[in-house]
């Protein structure tokens, strides 16, 4: 590790300025505004500067909020679990089953192709596929496997999770693949030489050495899913919601202080989750190695 030394002439201060301005102007300042507004009072007429805990009390004592948080956690958990399994298997295949580097890079680029189009298109594309008269239902019906169209496919929690997984898996694949491709092939061979079988190599060598990548991917997935309001709204047909979609409702109802309080709570929740992850692994190491 190198130590950052600040020179007397202040060159390093100039170097750090652009990032500092961006972070101050676009992160710290808006967060302070939201924090301030979350203590304000409001009614149908408008909002009034105050220092009141009523917004927080309302949110924390309401069953709706608890349910929303639980549902958001549920989405996050399942999406995390599924993207982790896909991310790990795809990375494993790319790193250890594909011998030629050219093929490895080609197949990896293939993974990114869906990401060349916008999120919205990729999400909307599922609708004709999953709908009552969509491709899956028609296909299953024509094979005689079902009499009634499957209702759970679209506008359901299933559809929401499916879309999340589709949209966000790459965020798990990239950091895990990155970590896995750095494993020295000699290390794997040394493990085999020491008598480890295939499963033991995965368990004792590959998993511990890719843990940092997993952590990084998990942070991506958690922050993306916890902060989403659009996918959950469209793919559940408005039947399901998340914490962020509740905020969206409050904003459209001009209840800015309530939305702000909700936002502060969500930020705290996500920061807590991420700091738990960071307690276990050193993400900085992944980025500097």
């Amino acid at each position: 590790m190198q130590k950052i030394t600040t020179k007397e002439n202040g060159v390093s201060w100039i170097q750090v300025t652009p990032l500092a301005i961006i972070l101050l102007g676009f992160l710290i300042a808006p967060l302070l505004v939201i924090l301030t507004v979350s203590f304000w009072e409001y009614d149908i007429g408008g909002m009034y500067p105050a220092f009141s805990h009523v917004n927080y009390t309302e949110i924390l004592t309401s069953h709706t909020t608890i349910n929303l948080y639980l549902r958001t956690f549920k989405f996050t958990f399942f999406v995390w679990l599924i993207t982790l399994s896909i991310g790990f298997s795809v990375s494993y295949f790319l790193s250890f089953c594909v011998a030629s580097t050219t093929w490895r890079i080609a197949l990896f680029l293939l993974c990114t192709i869906p990401f060349w189009t916008s999120n919205v298109i990729r999400m909307i594309a599922w609708i004709p596929f999953l709908g009552r008269n969509g491709a899956i239902n028609q296909g299953l019906a024509s094979m005689g496997l079902i009499d009634q169209p499957l209702e759970f496919l679209l506008f359901s929690e299933f559809a929401v999770i499916l879309t999340y997984v589709h949209l966000y898996t790459l965020f798990m694949i990239v950091p895990i693949f990155n970590a896995m491709s750095k494993i020295d092939p000699d290390v794997i061979e040394a493990a085999r030489d020491a008598g480890a079988n295939g499963w033991q190599i995965v368990r004792h060598i590959i998993v511990p050495l890719t843990l940092n990548g997993v952590a990084l991917g998990s942070i991506f997935i958690i922050t993306l899913v916890m902060g989403d309001f659009f996918i959950v709204r469209v793919m559940s047909g408005g039947l399901s919601g998340s914490v962020a979609s509740a905020m969206y409702n409050e904003i459209t109802g001009l209840q800015y202080p309530a939305a702000a309080a909700n936002a502060v709570l969500l930020v705290i929740t996500v920061v807590l989750l991420v700091s738990v992850i960071l307690r276990f692994v050193d993400v900085r190491k992944v980025l500097t190695e």
Binding site: E189, D193, A194, G195, A196, L209
Partner: peptide, 19 residues
């Protein structure tokens, strides 16, 4: 297979398990 042979190998890069 390699893991059952009465041989042990010392690698050029040493290939120690870094974790």
């Amino acid at each position: 297979p390699a893991r059952d042979r009465p041989t042990a190998m010392m690698f050029q890069s040493y290939a120690l398990f870094p974790h």
